[in-house]
Design a protein around this nucleic acid. Structure first.
Length: 358
DNA sequence: AACGATAGCAACCGCGGCGCC
DNA sequence: TGGCGCCGCGGTTGCTATCGT
């Protein structure tokens, strides 16, 4: 190292930003882009170091930042991702559009960590503390559902990683041994596979406890999305082994149960699935449906949006916007990608599974 | 009303990764 | 290949607002 911090320069301002400084920074970036952060302060007429400018921009001034209270879904996503990823706030932030890593980190430290602690859950390991285990009778049903979710999410993540590997093999030039070179249309490169912290799978305990505290939303849409991670995120490259969930455990789970009708909006889901699957869904009633799968369907249904809508809903960054109905041209790759994932998920489903989805 | 305690959050600090020379 | 500089990340600090007494 041996490099002195950029803010050591005499005369550079520190501390809270004034509205005037904000305005200068905003105006400059809107006009020229940030370019080199190091050079920006001089060009923008700011008595700040580049680092301070970058921080102010990324954490506060950026126009695509969503401020204000975190929703219950966001909280659940943070908890789940924290259980999977640990304190990797930037990785977690990629799953929460319009939230900054700093904001998520602060929210975790000031709210979620304390809430979990109050519920008798260790916020580091995400495990129920031994002295409170006796107080969580009746969790088994939720835990079973969440195990379903874990299966689906695990299968999806493994499929994603596998497809990434296959894609790399297909695209021999330039060769790459990792998933990081697998890119979908308009998508940034996938990061390398995540090395899981020891506390990988216990997130299920956390979420089941969390659901004991928070009532489920009344509407079908919000219900269905309750556990959903951003399924299209390029950061999702976890594998079974990464998640600490043994593949052999799959068959030990109870058979599928039919979805509650309220969990689906038939209108939004059925256009994307086979007639058999649609019929199966419409005839089903009672019981629970794996939440991860529900989220998958709903996410897929959500992709009915136009590309423009996808852009707008994702910080201006296009991810996989699948046009299932047309399935032509450049969207083919995304469609095939998704179908491959879901086919793999179907092929690994427990007994009494629904008909093929697509 | 005054004061201390606590919560919330913006900003800073230091380190490590990475690219360039 | 090693040094340097830039950038991003995670941990921490410190200021401000709010709450409780």
């Amino acid at each position: 190292m041996g490099r002195s911090p950029c803010c050591d320069k005499v005369g550079l301002k520190k501390g809270p930003w004034t509205p005037e400084e904000d305005q200068k920074l905003l105006a400059y970036i809107e006009k020229h882009g940030h370019g080199s952060w190091r050079a920006l302060p001089n060009k923008a007429g700011l008595q700040r170091c580049g680092k301070s400018c970058r921080l102010r921009w990324t954490n506060y001034l950026r126009p695509d930042i969503k401020r204000g209270k975190f929703t219950m879904q966001e909280e659940q996503t943070i908890i789940q991702l924290h259980a999977l990823l640990g304190n990797r706030w930037s990785a977690i932030a990629t799953h929460l559009p319009k939230r900054t890593d700093n904001e998520i980190k602060n929210y975790w430290n000031t709210h979620l960590k304390k809430s979990l602690a109050k519920m008798g859950i260790d916020p580091i390991t995400h495990k129920q503390r031994s002295d409170t285990i006796s107080s969580v009778h009746g969790r088994s049903k939720n835990a079973a559902n969440l195990n379903h979710m874990a299966q689906w999410e695990s299968a999806r993540l493994e499929a994603e990683a596998r497809l990434a590997r296959e894609s790399n093999l297909r695209r021999a030039a330039p060769p790459s041994p990792t998933a990081s070179s697998f890119t979908m249309k308009h998508q940034p490169p996938l990061p390398p596979p995540v090395t899981m912290p020891p506390a990988a799978s216990p997130c299920l305990d956390v979420l089941s406890a969390w659901h004991g505290v928070w009532p489920k939303p009344a509407t079908s849409n919000s219900h269905g999305k309750a556990y959903t991670i951003d399924l299209e995120s390029p950061s999702s490259t976890l594998s079974f082994s990464d998640m600490g969930i043994a593949e052999s455990n799959h068959r030990e789970e109870p058979p599928w149960r039919c979805p509650k009708k309220s969990e689906f909006s038939t209108d939004t889901v059925t256009p994307f699935i086979s007639a058999e699957a649609s019929s199966w869904l419409s005839e089903s009633s009672g019981g629970d449906f794996p939440a991860g799968f529900t989220g998958m369907l709903l996410d897929k249904a959500g992709q009915q949006n136009s590309t423009e809508e996808c852009e707008n809903s994702n910080n201006g960054e296009v991810r996989s916007c699948v046009d299932v109905e047309e399935g032509e041209g450049e969207d083919d790759e995304n469609k095939n990608y998704w179908n491959s994932i879901l086919n793999l998920v179907n092929s690994s489903s427990p007994p009494n599974s629904p008909p093929p989805l697509f």
